[in-house]
Amino acid sequence: MIRPLRQRGLQSHGRVTIRLTLKFSWSAVGWGCAETLRHPISDSMKALLQIAFSALTLALATSGALRAAEDALPDPPVLSAEETALDDWIWQKRPVLVFADNPADPRFIEQMELIEERMDALVLRDVVVITDTDPAARTDIRRKLRPRGFMLVVLAKDGTIVIRKPAPWDVREISRSIDKLPLRQQEIRDRRDVLRREAAAQ
């Protein structure tokens, strides 16, 4: 008989505790509401909130414009070294050159697959892809860069060599090497400024 009485006592105590907690919580809410009513938001705080909201809206609009611009970009051209010259692209594009002694070279195949998977990233960086898999053709591009077997070469818009790699490289790494260039950094800043102005005008 003693054990049931103790259990009932604990249950009763638990109910009292719950009631007190609820009363305290509702009192705290009521006090908070009353304090809010007694101290309305100041005009300066309203102005700050409006500025923050406008900045957030502009940032979202700019982000959406960036994504839309990227989706609208065409695929970068993939050309043979026999049909183009490096001088054609000075200050126009960044040539990414893929050399091999044979189009069946597994490294050449892998590199082209990596490029095709991320064409959008290359378009965004003004890239033109040029391939040369016939040493016997002795193209001007091959004579200038003198590859040995497989070679990946990235050029800046002024024609200077950014990287030379004897093995396939992921487009992410190619993009990073391009993004470090001062001209590319300026292009990024200019593009963001244009998109911000367009978003603000809408």
Rank of each mutant, 00 (worst) to 15 (best):
M1Q: 11
P4H: 09
P4C: 04
L5W: 15
R6K: 15
R6Q: 13
Q7A: 14
G9W: 15
L10I: 10
L10F: 14
H13E: 09
G14M: 12
R15M: 05
R15L: 08
R15H: 11
T17H: 09
R19V: 02
L20S: 07
L20N: 04
T21F: 14
L22S: 04
K23G: 13
F24Y: 10
F24A: 14
S25W: 15
S27H: 12
A28W: 12
V29C: 14
G30P: 07
G32I: 09
C33H: 08
C33Q: 10
A34H: 13
R38T: 01
S42A: 11
S42V: 04
D43M: 09
S44W: 02
M45A: 13
M45F: 06
K46I: 02
A47H: 12
S54I: 10
A59M: 01
A59P: 00
A59H: 05
A61Y: 01
T62A: 06
S63Y: 00
S63R: 04
S63T: 03
G64K: 11
A69C: 01
D71Q: 13
A72C: 07
A72K: 12
A72I: 02
L73C: 02
P74T: 05
P77A: 08
V78M: 13
S80K: 04
E82G: 00
A85Q: 09
A85N: 07
L86D: 01
D87W: 13
D88W: 10
I90P: 12
I90M: 13
W91K: 09
W91F: 15
W91E: 11
Q92L: 12
F99Y: 09
F99I: 00
A100I: 03
A100R: 09
D101T: 05
N102G: 03
P103Y: 06
P103W: 06
R107L: 08
F108N: 04
I109H: 05
I109T: 15
E113V: 05
L114W: 10
I115H: 07
I115L: 14
E116P: 03
E116L: 08
E117I: 05
E117T: 11
R118G: 07
R118A: 10
M119W: 12
D120P: 05
A121L: 15
V123L: 11
D126G: 06
V127M: 06
V128F: 11
T133W: 11
P135R: 03
P135F: 10
R138Y: 01
R138H: 06
T139K: 01
D140P: 08
I141K: 02
I141M: 03
L145W: 08
R146M: 10
F150M: 00
M151V: 00
V153Y: 07
K157L: 07
G159W: 12
T160V: 02
T160D: 14
I161F: 05
I161M: 10
K165E: 14
K165G: 02
K165L: 00
P166K: 14
W169P: 00
D170R: 15
D170T: 08
E173G: 00
E173D: 02
I174R: 03
S175L: 06
R176V: 02
D179W: 01
L183V: 13
L183K: 15
E187F: 11
I188Q: 11
R191F: 04
R192S: 00
R192E: 01
D193Y: 10
D193N: 05
V194L: 14
L195D: 01
L195H: 04
R196I: 05
R196G: 04
R197S: 11
E198C: 02
A199Q: 03
A200G: 06
A201G: 07
A201I: 00
